[in-house]
Nucleic acid binder design. Structure first.
Lengths: 341, 341
DNA sequence: CCAATTTCTTTACGCGCGTAAATTTTTTGT
DNA sequence: ACAAAAAATTTACGCGCGTAAAGAAATTGG
């Protein structure tokens, strides 16, 4: 296939019989050249396996095809999953996605942004750390680079926000829990990493009021992103002190619920809705792991596909010049009933 | 701080009072210039917030500072964790790491390699998909780019291999299980994604022979990387058909064990080593999630830190020109005793 | 078949930086 | 303080491609 090494576009254009500017145009957008020349170029690419030097390309192009995808913690399978989804969409749309994780560290998040800048990306999809984020840095960044915020909204920054409707999440699952047993207590972190948590608490309070029940929020100590451990330790404390006034616990998120389940296990408390179980536990997020907890976790799941599709499409539209006012899109989740509640 | 926008190294050198070649040299290696000039340059950087254009840099440099980190599945927290570790080491060593995931797909793995090539990386750290990997493509790649294989060895490819000592893993935990209760059965996938699985099975067989017990391997159906689901379904089948001859099950990896635990739960089988429990389950890998299963999973853990350190150091040494013959480094794991076995 | 339009070719310059060679300046050792 | 060594400067070219302008060629429509 490769008869001779092509070193640059000059050589390639010579051997393919097409002028270099036309070849350059082709690589910028294959549809911008006549069908017959496109075919000739593509045949030559196939034959000589030539690819333009991306560094030289990006140096002069005002807009690269790079897209940054930034998540707060890649070790969290929820973010890994949505990042994978976004990555695929970028690829399909002809962009070059690059994955970044802040690893739960606000300073690293700023560093990532700095790094990203030097890549002159066409756009960036970012799920901010949340409360700990350097909002000023984010805002400044979004002024220079088309930026779409997803998962966790901070302010009216960037092109817009796409995420889940946390109010609906909690309303829906609270409703379910109230109808099928004792009204839930709400289990959360005192200082949550993520502003979604506040919406969820508020929605819980609303739901309880609607049903005429007395709400009870248990807020546990703990900083950072080790939610399982925070849930486990907080769970132990709350359980030993009898802080839960009912037999049903709605957790602010699935990872907290997973930790709570572990605490329950360690205390010999049977969780579930069947006979012999003393409490019910539910989560929120539809975490990839929630299916495999013991008992499997009842939760309300993000619509991963819809969130990533909306986010990616909104970014691509903006890159293509379709200016739109800042908009917040919040998608509904769906209840996944399992054994835990 | 920023009085005036610096557009390129020319302007920067003018305003900082240092010639451009020296500035260029500085950015290549700050230690290569006199301390006093280094200080002046760094002061100017601070003052004008200048950063060289990475595309222009990488275009001419024969060796970039890019390092690729490739894992088979980023959605697996084990890989996410080790990737994070490697990423940090690259950063600390002055490289620019970029994360890639094959998402369990051999074709994507080849695409990633292709993509990586165009980045002209100084080196690549890759955990191959394993059995499904296109070994030829990997080999060809490793001839062009300094490549260090980690986690899962395929052949004597690249600079070397760094991973865990799977024989030791299984020997150690088998030993533990044999000494503390009934000898284990071995629970694995019939067609494992990863060659480590074969070593583990073999080591299990060896251990059983050493103890004079009859080994029993239960190999379950299932393709791909959804190990939990494969473990759950295979667990149901094996349990319903009474395929386990003892009350102890050693799983080929933690994710399989997690699925098996779920199957046990769903069948009402109590897992653990305390009274009232009918079977013991152990895993292998020290998966980040293993602490939070119910019961918490007894496992033998990779030495994440040591593996990533050895892998990164070996790559950096090779990049720095320290040629060494191909070498396989396998690090021991340590037993983590929890409630499941 | 010819004019209008589209597409391609030729020519040329610039991007921001790496890097080499020759020269000048600064530092080092004694 | 002086010669040797080290470091910085000046000058100049190249990397691979984007891109603009002007003209030539191919395509289209009637």
């Amino acid at each position: 296939m490769a008869q001779q090494k092509i070193r640059n576009m000059e050589e390639f254009s010579a051997i393919s019989g097409i002028s270099r500017p036309t070849v350059s145009k082709f690589f910028h957008d294959p549809d911008s050249v006549r069908l017959s020349t496109r075919a000739r170029i593509e045949a030559a690419i196939e034959k000589y396996d030539y690819r333009p030097n991306i560094f030289a390309m990006n140096q002069n192009r005002k807009l690269t095809k790079n897209v940054g995808i930034v998540v707060p913690l890649l070790a969290d399978p929820y973010f890994a999953e949505i990042a994978r989804n976004l990555e695929q969409r970028c690829l399909d749309a002809g962009y070059r996605p690059t994955l970044f994780s802040a690893h739960g560290d606000p300073d690293l998040e700023v560093e990532v942004l700095d790094n990203l800048r030097s890549m002159k990306p066409a756009g960036v999809l970012i799920a901010p750390l949340g409360r700990a984020s350097n909002v000023r840095a984010l805002e400044k960044f979004s002024e220079d680079v088309p930026t779409l915020i997803f998962d966790s909204s901070v302010e009216e920054i960037g092109l817009g926000f796409v995420g889940s409707d946390n109010m609906q999440f909690t309303a829906h699952i609270s409703d379910y829990l109230c109808r099928t047993g004792e009204p839930p207590c709400f289990f959360e972190m005192k200082t949550p990493a993520n502003p979604n948590a506040h919406r969820r608490r508020q929605s819980y309070l609303n739901a309880m009021e609607k049903f005429g029940f007395t709400p009870q929020v248990v807020s546990v100590e703990g900083e950072g992103w080790a939610f399982e451990e925070i849930g486990r330790l907080g769970g132990h404390k709350a359980l030993s002190e009898g802080q839960f006034s009912t037999n049903t616990i709605l957790c602010s998120n699935d990872r907290l619920a997973i930790g709570l389940l572990t605490a329950c296990y360690e205390r010999g408390i049977r969780v579930g809705r069947t006979e012999g179980c003393s409490i019910r536990v539910a989560g929120q997020d539809g975490h990839p792991h929630s299916r495999y907890t013991c008992p499997p976790l009842t939760t309300i799941s993000h619509d991963y596909d819809a969130v990533s599709k909306h986010a990616a499409d909104a970014l691509f539209a903006a890159i293509d010049g379709h200016v739109e006012p800042w908009k917040s899109t919040r998608l509904e989740g769906k209840l996944i009933m399992r054994d835990s509640a």
